[in-house]
Design a protein around this nucleic acid. Structure first.
Length: 418
DNA sequence: TCTGGGGTCCTAGGACCC
DNA sequence: TCTGGGGTCCTAGGACCC
């Protein structure tokens, strides 16, 4: 049976959400109607465009570009700092409406959902009517607009949503693929990024239709599995179901930071690793996971990334052990070059319940380590994730983005002696 | 002092074993 | 003075997404 799938995308999500909030707080200009952008902190070298208004787009401002460059294109650009706590709340309000109306839906990102509404015509009318009703309801109740793509599979629904923005419903049904999808530039196809687009252009493929008509064997030979996937997408073929889980189990977690200035001295860098580790280990424990593998990576002043990962002797979620491992890994790969950004990752996650000790573990010693982490975590859960830190980490840059996960706004700083 | 941060997946090539 | 080959596992780096 043919499916009906919606893709719902909040228009310029961060910007819209900030605009709605500012209007509510009495600010008299709607950011969405003037050239504006949500931007990072330039002083901390995070000055990029995170979202832009449609008037800003008309000046050629693009997401991801440095703020100075955006300002050069549009000198009157109004730049507003990001408010991740607000975005997280707005995202929940958005999905609450969808959850109320549809039994099968999937959160794809903070501002996007897929909905499977196969067989709901009896309740909600034909798919276009149903999508229109959802679009108006979100706008009316929450004050921001969405674009909804309607089709028979996820990829086509997502591509359809791109056709008209903002505040619109568009479709690409299978019989419309040739007319609506094929004329688009190939780099607009889902999963065709800059690198693949460049390679495709060199092969003489510039439109999605060119890709659709290329021999799939050639695509497979040139791009491997990925080549076959994008060939299928170009032909409107995608069997992926809308998975109605609230949240899939994470497979890895990571935390990284761009340093306020390049660092090349180990005594400056290790405290940053210590801070990253404290934060990420706390997250790992809140997930109820242990990890079997750690990664350290950095980006140098030439934007070259270097990484190294290592399996652990046994799974762990103990801050001290994870710090020891990440520090030694870093020392293994670091050659003294200037570092611009630094990160750590924990992967091969397993449920904490299944993690066993080894013969070499001293149960009393382990018990002490667990107790220390538990005590520290109870402070963090009351006062915020960064309220308690290893003393050495206090001299490292702060991680504001952590607030994204923090229900508590207040921060009380305490020095932790380990 | 131009380019964030958090994810997932794939692949090429090296190590190692038989 | 020629130097197998096949299989598995591991991992660094890079692709993509938001």
């Amino acid at each position: 049976m043919a499916r009906t799938v919606f893709h719902v995308d909040v228009n310029s999500a961060f910007l819209s959400w900030s605009a709605v909030q500012m209007l509510r707080n009495g600010y008299d200009t709607d950011l969405r109607l003037i050239p504006s952008a949500i931007g990072g902190d330039e002083e901390k070298r995070k000055g990029i465009v995170l979202a832009k208004s449609i008037p800003a787009k008309k000046y050629g401002v693009i997401t991801g570009e440095p703020l100075w460059q955006a300002r050069k294109k549009c000198p009157e650009l109004v730049i507003v700092p990001a408010n991740y706590g607000l975005y997280s709340r707005m995202s929940s309000l958005f999905t609450e409406i969808i959850d109320h109306e549809f039994p099968v839906w999937q959160k794809y990102s903070v501002d996007e959902c897929f909905i499977d509404c196969t067989g709901m015509e009896g309740i909600r009318g034909d798919p276009i009517q149903s999508a229109e009703a959802l679009r108006s309801e979100i706008k009316e109740r929450l004050g921001f607009t969405v674009s909804i793509g309607v089709s028979s599979c996820k990829v086509l629904a997502k591509m359809a949503g791109e056709l008209k923005k903002p505040d619109a419903v568009s479709s690409i049904f299978p019989y419309e693929v040739e007319k609506k999808l094929w004329p688009l530039p190939v780099d607009e196809l889902f999963m065709v990024g800059r690198s693949t687009a460049r390679a495709l252009n060199l092969m003489g493929i510039s439109q999605i239709g060119d890709l659709a008509k290329t021999d799939p064997e050639i695509m497979k030979k040139r791009f491997g599995k990925h080549g076959l996937s994008i060939w299928l997408y170009a032909n409107g073929i995608d069997q992926e179901p809308v998975v109605s889980t609230m949240r899939e189990e994470p497979k890895s977690c990571s935390q990284s930071v761009t340093l306020p200035h390049d660092m090349s001295c180990e005594k400056d860098i290790i405290p940053v690793i210590s801070r990253l580790c404290a934060a990420l280990a706390y997250r790992l424990r809140r997930l109820g996971k242990c990890c079997c593998e750690v990664t350290v990576f950095f980006k140098d002043d030439k934007f070259v990334t270097v990484s190294r990962q290592q399996r652990l002797f046994r799974p762990t979620d103990i801050s001290g052990e994870l710090f020891e491992k990440t520090r030694s890994l870093f020392r293994l790969i670091y050659d003294g070059r200037p570092i611009r950004a630094l990160g750590i990752g924990f992967s091969a996650l397993t449920p904490k319940e299944g993690c066993a000790f080894t013969l070499f573990d001293d149960p009393a010693n382990l018990g002490r380590k667990f107790a220390i982490d538990a005590a520290a975590d109870s402070v963090r859960s009351r006062f915020g994730g960064e309220s308690l830190l290893p003393a050495s980490a206090l001299i490292s840059p702060t991680f504001e983005h952590l607030k994204r996960f923090e229900p508590n706004e207040g921060h009380i700083r305490t020095v932790c002696p380990f």
